[in-house]
Design a protein around this nucleic acid. Sequence first.
DNA 1: AAATAAAATTAGGCAAGACTAATTTTATTT
DNA 2: AAATAAAATTAGTCTTGCCTAATTTTATTT
Lengths: 218, 218
Amino acid sequence: MITLSEENYLKCIYRLWQDKGQKITPTAIAESLGNNPASVVDMIRKLTDKQLINYDKKKGVELTTQGQKDATLIVRRHRLWEVFLLEKLGYHWDEIHDIAEELEHIKDATLADRLDKFLGFPEYDPHGDPIPKANGKMAKRYSTTLADVKTGGQCRVVAVKDTTSQFLQYLQKLGINIGTKIQLIERISFDNSLVISIDGAEHKTVSQKFGESLLIDM
Amino acid sequence: MITLSEENYLKCIYRLWQDKGQKITPTAIAESLGNNPASVVDMIRKLTDKQLINYDKKKGVELTTQGQKDATLIVRRHRLWEVFLLEKLGYHWDEIHDIAEELEHIKDATLADRLDKFLGFPEYDPHGDPIPKANGKMAKRYSTTLADVKTGGQCRVVAVKDTTSQFLQYLQKLGINIGTKIQLIERISFDNSLVISIDGAEHKTVSQKFGESLLIDM
DNA sequence: AAATAAAATTAGGCAAGACTAATTTTATTT
DNA sequence: AAATAAAATTAGTCTTGCCTAATTTTATTT
Ligand SMILES: [Mn+2]
Ligand SMILES: [Mn+2]
Ligand SMILES: [Mn+2]
Ligand SMILES: [Mn+2]
């Protein structure tokens, strides 16, 4: 049996792996979860014993085939619950992440599949992240951010990389949603701030960090 | 903050209180949860410190006003989730209890109320137990069992007192659901077995324990 | 009332999952 | 290459929630 904490670590490792494709270190995991590196080292031992990860000083942490499967299923449950909370219960997109963070740990052989069917087999969650299918496959993940757009370029928001309520509420305030069209008017060379036009409206300036948190399709 | 274990104890105490109205002892709690009495004594201390229960050698365990409120909310969540699992996800009534046992611990200020609304404010859960309203009030709880019916009497199943899948699957096999009409043909004085007719069909014999597990309305 | 049985409690222990502080290893500068 | 900084690891501690075994208290028989 895999515990709640183990599941959270697994999901975290999975995300780091997808996000960066880089070496996954204890420090990176600790930072991402807000835990102490010493605790991470403990958990690395546990997950290694359970054959869900491999750890090598040189290569860092890697998911085993089983670890990948388990992680994918947790992500599937998380994103399906997010769709449920938004579409069926009427939550806003900045409220659902934390609740899904708990719901994702409910274990039942058929729950995810039933929920998937009930929701009409959605491809993406409310933040634009692809929902893994029962077989582990999933739709395209976008990786280009608003910060990658060249000056003058036009793009469409397809996902958010940051799901904190601070960021999502800021987007709300700016009138940005999945699907919103944005034009990059100017890049301020001093600090890479971005001057943008949202749905053709008047110009607004946002930070580089902001730009790197919005995934777009050109 | 109240932990998952504390919530389970609280709900257990609440059920014992409703079921019997009798003195609630550490042994009774231990039995009901399948835990050791020593563990129960530990938890009694914790819940007392948090002012959710009072414990007196003479009177046994009693819920404080806050304890009652908390317990009622947990029960509310449990029963609402059961309705969801059955009606929206298509589970059978013998599969939902264990999943709801986990879902009931998801904490969010508005979740229960949103779920309630989404489900159309159901009065009873799939086992015939009344669902506490947001204000703590709830519909009538039935207390007469099939074992209380007098010979020759006709009654209607309104709830099950036992929600184990063994019992529920047995009911399924016998064709008994909430709403099913049962006539008590004969009571075997040797062991209080009951000869019954289900929806007017041929006679079947069931045990006293069975009779005491079915709540009915005359 | 004594003897016995049952229930409650205490004492001590264990595993999970976190922490801090100290140490060791590895990487980066100078 | 040595010095320094950063990262990883170890050692030891804490809380929660459970356990077993021993003891004490309470209830039931004889
Ligand atoms: Mn989680
Ligand atoms: Mn999401
Ligand atoms: Mn529970
Ligand atoms: Mn129920």
